[in-house]
Write a protein that binds this DNA or RNA. Sequence first.
DNA 1: CGGAATTTTATTGTCCGACAATAATGGGAG
DNA 2: CTCCCATTATTGTCGGACAATAAAATTCCG
Lengths: 252, 252
Amino acid sequence: MPVIDPTAVELQTRHEPAYRVVVRSIEAKIMSGQWAVGDRVPAETTLATDYGVHRSTVREAIRVLEQNGLVRRHDGGKLLYVTAPREADISQKVTAAIVLHEISFFELWESMRCLEPMLAECAAKRIDDEALEALRANVEKTKAAFEDKRSLVELDIEFHQIIARASRNRALQLSREPMSQLFYPAFFNVFSRLNAGERLVFAHERILQALSRRDVTDARSWMDKHIVDFRRGYELANLDIEAPVGRAQQSG
Amino acid sequence: MPVIDPTAVELQTRHEPAYRVVVRSIEAKIMSGQWAVGDRVPAETTLATDYGVHRSTVREAIRVLEQNGLVRRHDGGKLLYVTAPREADISQKVTAAIVLHEISFFELWESMRCLEPMLAECAAKRIDDEALEALRANVEKTKAAFEDKRSLVELDIEFHQIIARASRNRALQLSREPMSQLFYPAFFNVFSRLNAGERLVFAHERILQALSRRDVTDARSWMDKHIVDFRRGYELANLDIEAPVGRAQQSG
DNA sequence: CGGAATTTTATTGTCCGACAATAATGGGAG
DNA sequence: CTCCCATTATTGTCGGACAATAAAATTCCG
């Protein structure tokens, strides 16, 4: 009795296409560990004869597995290997889903207000000196980049990313990543309209101090303030909180 | 300047396979809204001539898009339509990623402890009478199902799902769903070992009461207690907090 | 004998064409 | 106007082919 059963609900009457059978078979082999991460996947022709189908059919199956991040070819190579899905693989898909479902900035903001303080809290418990040093460097660079809005955005993204990694919680990171991709472009709008650099540096400094002291409570509360403050900036910049994210945001 | 640019970093030197070009082209049409959700996608042969490639090539592209949830055939039909990715589509992929990355139960629990109280808080603000009624019915059924561990698990899943929906925040729901899929199977282990039905009902009743009163603070704090309590149960049941989720959990 | 250069082989990306099964569509009978 | 049937369109699958090139095997040279 498998803990997860993706193969559970399946229509018996309409016979499943062959390529999907191949997908599920290989998927099962990978998820069960029979084909371990790093193993090479047999050639298309081999799979075709093994499964008794045409190579085109195998190919379609491979595209599906590839897209799910379960198999991948090493950079510039043509051999296929079993892999664990990369964060970027699924992050991108979640991002697309958010856009197409026309999820509002508000929903994203609310989620970030939930996740970021938690990430900060976890980071305060587990951050190492290396990450702390990276954060210090980031804040210094931010101070120096007051003029350049674009660098400001990039440095802000980096700041939060370092903290996310420092949390040592990959599940939280996985949740945060796709949202941040959509959340932060809005930053550029805010920075362009308001001169928010000063507030940004102030907040980042406070958070950094809290993390340095491993002060869980402070890290959380400053991060929370920071997220709340961003929403105010968003509103002050005359952007629509309720508008779906993803398409180019316009001022009201 | 697009807000998101998935097509950004791409190797120029090694020429991109044709099927991938087709994917990106169609993807762009969908993401930009040029092909709206609900529109029919042209037939494979049409696309083939349009793009000047063979039908097999188009087919591989379609598999990719299909897997991303951007296009789908209506149940039992053969015509392809533009769609927004379903929650289940990506939820399943995230779940696979969590398993293959061997993310620990602790990481998942920590994430749920972040998300569930927030979901409860949002639900307290926005829940309607219908959902409230559904929750009441759920709690009644739970009281009646004290013996049957399996029903107990299912009812618990339902309870939290109703609250998630009531939060009216689809981004949060999107984060929660894949984790809950992996989180809850562990429930069965706990219920089997401990007689946790009583505690479960107690907690659910408190949460329900708070939601009925639209008491944001109470809803959050009872949900938090509930999640914390579950972890205790997990430990009392002698299960390993640090073990990766996904494979069958064993007692220590 | 070990490593670099070169040849051979394996593998992928793409194409052409074909055919059966069946969903979609259009048209006629009631 | 609705229901049933013939026609058409579309997909799933197959067989085979070929160029490009990565991978492997082999030769060559210091």
